[in-house]
Computed example of a mutant assay.
Amino acid sequence: MSSRRRFLLAGLGAACALPFAGRAWEPAPMRVLTATDVHVRDYPTVAAVRWIGEQLTRETGGRLGLRVYHGGQLGRESDAIDMARFGAIDIVRVYSGALNNAFPLTQALCLPYVFDSVAHMRRVIDGEVGTAVLRGFEARGLVGLAIYDSGARCFYNTRRPLHTPADLHGLKFRAPPSDIFIRMLRLFGANPTPLSFGEVFSALETRLIDGAENNMRSFHSSRQFEVARYWSQTEHSYAPDVLLISRRSFEALAPDERALLLDTARRSVAVMRRLWDESEAAARQAVIDAGVHINTVDMVAFAQAAQPLLDDHLRRPGIAELYRRIRDLA
């Protein structure tokens, strides 16, 4: 852990301890939960978590609050997951691809072309599949609070339009820390380069990588569109984001506070989706206005190239059952 992050975490502990310095007759102190996100302040997931904090403070009369550290102030998503598991921070918003190796059920949400559209993905995560995935975190020190959208993930690069997998051959593409995405890129003929989200802009700018894949909102808010001028509408993944709380932090809350947090987190999904839909359309127009070239692709060719990856995962009983439920809702 970096010295900067140690300093921030030490500050969190001191800030949370201050209210307890009062006299015994003073009002009950506010407990301030900490949340982290790698995205910018106005990103829909960040705004939704801030909304949770506002509701908690209002509903508890100031007894419970939430402070959000955005923009990766507390480190990468992989670091945040570990810190939450061991109680160093309370709440994390993390991309489901970063959870695949430690929490196998999330793999079903990240397989290529498992979802047909945003509407399909939302039906799935609002139902039994979403509930099963959230329950799966309890075995390893976390509690699932909600599943958020992450839009249609597509490829973008600094070199050329991509129409078929053959156009990726030989290109170096950033891969999130997920075996699924690394193998998918290899099947498409690209050379996967695992990097954290915060490293992508400089890697594109310095030509360490030729391209990456993400949703339009992140492509715009990270300003990666300034260096990667070709966006190809592959829609190879609708893998969502997940909101988690440390199990230690959750169990330290009073029973009524736990129930309130769970309910508020579920209600925040509608808040996040409204903000997402509004801002994604604006982001797309902004990158078009900035001169980014957007092209359609041969989705059948991409899906066929990814089929061996899908076949391998469907041999795993738990994943196969979730996949069947997902496709039943298509």
Rank of each mutant, 00 (worst) to 15 (best):
G13C: 10
E213K: 04
L99F: 03
R23I: 11
I52N: 07
F188Q: 03
S237R: 05
V129D: 01
V32Q: 12
G318W: 00
K172R: 15
L64N: 02
L142H: 05
N101A: 15
M216E: 02
G318H: 09
Q55N: 08
R76L: 13
A108K: 07
A35L: 08
D256S: 13
L187W: 04
H39R: 15
N191T: 13
G22R: 11
D149K: 03
R284H: 09
G144I: 05
I319W: 05
D79R: 12
F155S: 06
P194S: 09
L314G: 01
A15Y: 00
R325N: 02
A28I: 08
E213M: 05
V300K: 10
F225M: 03
V227Q: 04
C16I: 13
F173W: 08
G13W: 10
T158R: 13
A119R: 09
I294W: 06
T45W: 00
R31Y: 08
N191C: 13
V271Q: 05
L253N: 08
D79C: 13
G61V: 11
Q107A: 14
I52E: 03
C110S: 11
R122Q: 14
A24K: 07
A108C: 04
F20A: 14
A47V: 14
A132C: 04
R5D: 09
N191V: 15
F86A: 15
V227A: 02
G189I: 03
L74N: 01
V46S: 08
H313F: 14
G62S: 07
A305R: 04
H169I: 14
M83N: 11
L208I: 15
G97C: 10
M272I: 00
G189N: 01
D263N: 14
G62C: 03
S202W: 10
A84E: 05
Q285S: 12
E226M: 00
T60E: 08
A282I: 07
A252Y: 03
P112C: 04
E138Q: 06
Q304W: 09
L168S: 09
C110H: 06
G318I: 00
F115M: 01
S3H: 13
V292S: 07
G87A: 07
T131K: 13
